[in-house]
Design a protein around this nucleic acid. Structure first.
Lengths: 260, 260
DNA sequence: CAGTGTGAAACTTTTCACAGCT
DNA sequence: AGCTGTGAAAAGTTTCACACTG
């Protein structure tokens, strides 16, 4: 909602909130499942449940895309799939390179959901000469020396870094220099990139640490609860948790993209 | 947050904002690196740069933990490492089970940063009988039949699901029934869990789709930019991006935990 | 005087609740 | 009658800017 909405009320304008963007893939997945089961329409309530969010949030999110529902009825599944795909830029397909073909890189290469929606693994790249030529997930691994050529020849703009932490920044620099402008980083490092390049980070140990924090909290609360229960009368059962909601928050963080 | 903060101004009370919690692991990692280089103190500016956030945010975050800095000087690295570790519950170590030992599960089992900070892989579990006994990352894989016993015998409260999507909910149910209260889910599914169980989700294709959205946006802006540049005089270079910041947002999303 | 700690302002995201369409 | 679309309120997060302290 950055630039005013003053006029142009019809054609949904730009400026979809980042939090909404982060949820669109979730909706898309739920819708795709419905589509496969040939469900023709769905209400915000049902779709929200399938996506793990609440319906008010979902309706608000969709309102940023336009008015694609029918009052009293719900949303047309196929139509919404198309609209969200388009909004996410998945009507074209994006060639992606994966750099670092260890266990993780191989797992990513084998990941089916990859190809299924808008992405194509254009190349697998590894620094180990012994890997060169070896096929992983049916794609021959190429040596890092080829990186620049691969990026240019395939018009790759999205790169996935699955290397050890030590190599990540260097790989990142080369990717960016060769023209990549979006990076998904699995290495546990903060990457620095020039303006205009987006980096998203996936980090196992950070996720675990966040869980540990809450886990620890629960242990503490349990003790408090027992005490309270002992002191007071009876009703202490489900009274502890702070947030409830049917939500399944993404980002956990507000992960947000970071144009760096 | 929820319960008022009315009194108790002194001792840092409970209720650290979720967004702050999500960044603590980032700070911890940066601090650990400094510690290894034997750097004794660090300013909010330096540490923020290392963690990829801005210094105001970092100071605000630390203010929720207490006053651990020294005005005019900065923060004592060792002391902060300890305080953050304690806050995150990493002074104890958490036994973790990984269910689903495919490429991804193996990658996770081999992930070093795992053991390094507060977590211990208590067991690897897979449904394939052929895997049973086979060691991965030095740990023998056990069959799913043993799941409940493993959880109970090891006092596991954190589980990692790295199975195919189809098996995830079922595995989740068993983990929860056996006593697990925190789950890190790598399968592309929305898990439903009872109240009091936290789920965090890591999803490759969602991340890629978010990148695709921004990538598409860039392409559009580029065109607009060129047009504007042609029409106007000259200054259009770095004027495009909407957010700037040195930030490297986690969550990308607001991933947030979801007490479900 | 360099640099923390923090109120207050600005912005973003979520939730509420209901008018309005089909 | 039912369900969407959305203003408006509430909650959460980030940024600003400066008083205060070692």
């Amino acid at each position: 909602m950055a630039t005013g909405r003053t006029h142009r009320p019809a054609t949904r304008s730009r400026g979809i909130p980042e939090a909404t963007v982060a949820r669109l893939p979730l909706y898309l997945r739920a819708l795709t499942a419905l589509s496969e089961r040939s469900v023709p329409t769905v209400s915000s309530e049902e779709l929200a449940a399938a996506a793990g969010v609440n319906s008010a949030k979902l309706r608000k999110d969709f309102s940023y895309l336009g008015s694609y529902g029918t009052r009293g009825v719900g949303y047309d599944v196929e139509y919404l799939v198309y609209q969200i795909s388009r909004e996410l830029g998945l009507t074209q397909d994006w060639p992606v390179v994966i750099v670092g073909i260890g266990n993780l890189g191989a797992a990513l290469a084998n990941y089916g959901g990859f190809a299924s929606r808008g992405f194509r693994v254009a190349a697998l790249i590894d620094a180990d000469p012994a890997m060169a030529g070896k096929p992983v997930a049916g794609i021959p691994v190429q040596h890092t020396d080829e990186l620049e050529a691969i990026i240019r020849d395939n018009g790759v703009s999205i790169g996935v870094i699955a290397t050890p932490a030590g190599a990540a920044q260097q790989v990142c620099d080369r990717l960016v220099a060769a023209g990549v402008t979006s990076i998904l980083n699995f290495a546990p490092t903060v990457l620095s990139v020039p303006d205009g390049v987006d980096v998203r980070k996936v980090d196992l140990s950070i996720e675990l640490q966040i869980l540990a924090f809450h886990e620890q909290r629960k242990a503490g609360e349990e003790a408090a609860e027992v005490a309270a229960q002992a002191a007071a009368g009876a009703p202490a059962a489900a009274a502890a948790r702070e947030k409830s909601a049917t939500d399944q928050g993404p980002d956990g963080d507000v992960p947000a993209v970071m144009p760096a």
